[in-house]
């Protein structure tokens, strides 16, 4: 069982604030990293790890665990923060992000950090891998779920649409894709760079049960996860509308804080806002 849980919504809110500070401090210490997309996805990951997942952080290879594939691997500071919070590893490791010999690589590495299911970072690949995991569960008649978190910019990759086409064919109702729709990517807003709209309609047309939520509303997230887990016969997509840099006023911008580390002063200001 997770070593950390949050019993009430107020507690969860406090946890997500605390994890946001971890993200900022970790990237500040590394001197590089991706704060924008980590802050947009942290609420989704927090609810997943603290409220929804069937997992045993002390036994990361437990065969019946739910699988999580962070396809948008650059947001791993958020994943590391929530994994430390739930007891996969000591929080002390967070300050080693991106440093020589650290298991906390710049993008997740499953062979260096137990609890990471898939080494990701090359965008567009995670959903196919998650699909294979869901297929294996069906073959073995196991009831674990596979959760795949995608970035919105990543949805521009053709491989994602190959996987979106395939999952309903295999009736993978044990596969849940969560799109962190923060509308930001390196070269500008997603809308300008390569618009995805109407995204939810496209996913529905691809035969995915599609749920649209506010990706920073913790209760809505928890509700969507519970709803997704009950769907039968086809895969589920959760389009989570989020904001890049969410929680830190000066980082809430589609692309300015995609891949830039805060300096000490900026990190202090961010932490102050969050506390």
């Amino acid at each position: 069982m997770p070593t950390a849980t949050a019993s009430s919504d107020t507690d969860m809110k406090a946890v997500t604030r605390e994890l946001r500070v971890d993200i900022i401090r970790m990237i500040e210490a590394a001197g590089s990293g991706h704060p924008g997309g980590s802050l947009s996805v942290i609420d989704l990951l927090s609810v997943l790890y603290l409220k929804t997942l069937r997992h045993r952080p002390a036994e990361p290879l437990w065969p019946d665990r739910d699988r999580v594939v962070l396809s948008k691997g650059h947001a791993c500071p958020a994943l590391y923060a929530v994994m430390a919070k739930t007891g996969y590893f000591s929080r002390d490791l967070l300050s080693g992000l991106r440093k020589l010999g650290s298991p906390l690589q710049g993008h997740p590495d499953r062979l260096r950090l137990p609890g990471i299911e898939v080494s990701t970072g090359s965008l567009g690949q995670g959903l196919s891998i998650a699909l294979g995991m869901a297929l294996a569960a069906k073959l073995d008649k196991k009831d674990f779920k596979t959760w795949c978190i995608l970035g919105d910019g990543e949805m521009q990759e053709g491989q994602v649409w190959e996987a979106l086409l395939a999952a309903p064919k295999f009736k993978l109702d044990n596969l849940i894709a969560i799109v962190d729709y923060n509308n930001g990517q390196i070269d500008g807003s997603v809308k300008e760079v390569m618009d995805l709209e109407p995204l939810a309609d496209k996913l529905r047309a691809f035969n995915w049960e599609t749920i649209v939520i506010d990706g920073h509303d913790l209760a809505a997230i928890e509700g969507a996860y519970a709803q997704a887990a009950r769907v039968s016969g086809r895969p589920v997509a959760i389009v989570a509308k989020t904001a890049k840099g969410k929680g830190v006023s000066f980082m809430e911008h589609p692309c300015e804080w995609h891949g830039k580390a805060p300096n000490k002063d900026e990190a202090d200001r961010a932490a102050k806002e969050l506390c």
């Binding site: 699988r67 959903l127 891998i129 998650a130 699909l131 995991m133 297929l135 491989q159 996987a163 395939a166």
Partner: peptide, 28 residues
């Protein structure tokens, strides 16, 4: 037939799915 999966003309998805199957103990 129950252990054969047709992915259509979509090789990169097939290769990615093979990786996922392998991570769950299959030999794809």
């Amino acid at each position: 037939p129950e252990r054969h999966f047709e992915f259509g003309i979509a090789e990169q998805n097939m290769i990615g799915a093979a990786a996922g199957l392998a991570l769950c103990g299959k030999v794809p």
